[in-house]
Design a protein around this nucleic acid. Structure first.
Lengths: 187, 187
DNA sequence: ATCATAATATATCATAATGATATGTACTGT
DNA sequence: ACAGTACATATCATTATGATATATTATGAT
């Protein structure tokens, strides 16, 4: 089997479905609001955007030199693009594959001192704690918008998922520290 | 900056630190016990193993044709390899980057019917439920080994992390379903 | 006023990682 | 006898990342 552009194509379509924008703003948007479950690099974004145009899924309205930077290319989704996006949304999502370097290091723990792992876990707890707070802040913000009849329910749902994951990771790390310390005391 | 072979190198070293083995058994091991936080493909494993030998971090003891398949190459870690692994374990783990296709689809939810999302969430709940059970089974197994003085504490810790994550994901999905339905009823 | 640097914006490339496919032997069940 | 699976290595096209190059404008510091 072939015919698989990867998911980047659909991410671009999803972004353009919200509003016409440039590759740069798509990148910023993903960095700011998607980073806990998705990321895209410029090396994917720009070629994918060009492919979208070649396939008739988006069109460009070239706003050369409107003040910002060195001239921007604004992409707008077409009806065919919306159809393509909608079709993809119906497909069963692939099973996610994750790479947690911390877990890898924990699993190789016998090859280092427990203090090394405890240090990594401390940093991990701090980071996840901060992320939980960020997510909760974002969820609250969405709630406020909702009162003003601005709907961001789906963004709120993904933020809620972030809050769940980061909490779980923090709780696990706290428990992991306890178990490692207990094991040390036994010796 | 350059000089970054990626993490595969250290995964191979960590695997070989346990026992001398072939690329194939490394792959199987990662699939069976690491899949919830790491994965490697043959396209990475075999070339990386060769690099390890070139760098003096592993040696091969060529057991050509000992009965299994078409002849195997057994890799054994060297002292230099153990040093390299130990040094890497001390380094601060990189921030993980994750791609949850389901979350992406939820965040683009406005472009499809709520039923589509609810269906995806149902499958997601089922899958995560199964995984939680798998993890708990594995944790229990480790506990039994411990009574026989076989230490698999670190594997147990990573399985515990899996249990935490998968539970969190399941709980989130249940809550997400509730929120989406509630929103539908409001209309 | 000048100067550094941050932000906006596009583009490309080497490296890394995946997924698929090819090749081949040996064991297991029907 | 034959199909299917497990063992085992290898390669390649596609996909993704991270770094770097280029260029303009806005902003803050001296």
């Amino acid at each position: 089997m072939k015919e698989n552009t990867g998911k980047s194509k659909y991410v671009m379509l999803g972004m353009l479905a919200r509003m016409p924008q440039t590759g740069y703003t798509i990148k910023k948007w993903i960095e700011n609001e998607y980073s806990h479950f998705w990321q895209e690099s410029f090396g994917q974004i720009y070629p994918t955007l060009k492919k979208l145009v070649a396939e008739g899924l988006a069109v460009t309205s070239n706003h050369t030199q409107n003040g910002n930077g060195r001239g921007q290319i604004v992409y707008t989704i077409t009806d065919a693009g919306r159809k393509e996006l909608s079709d993809w949304l119906k497909e069963e999502p692939e099973i996610e594959k994750i790479r947690y370097e911390l877990l890898l290091k924990v699993s190789f723990g016998e090859n280092t001192e427990p203090e090394v792992l405890l240090g990594h876990l401390d940093n991990f707890i701090r980071r996840n704690d901060k992320l939980v707070k960020e997510m909760n802040g974002y969820i609250e913000l969405c709630g406020q918008f909702k009162e003003q009849d601005i709907d961001c329910s789906y963004s709120q749902l993904t933020a809620l998922c972030g809050a769940y994951i980061y909490s779980a990771m923090r709780d696990w790390a706290v428990e992991a520290k306890r178990i490692i310390k207990e094991k040390e005391d036994d010796k």
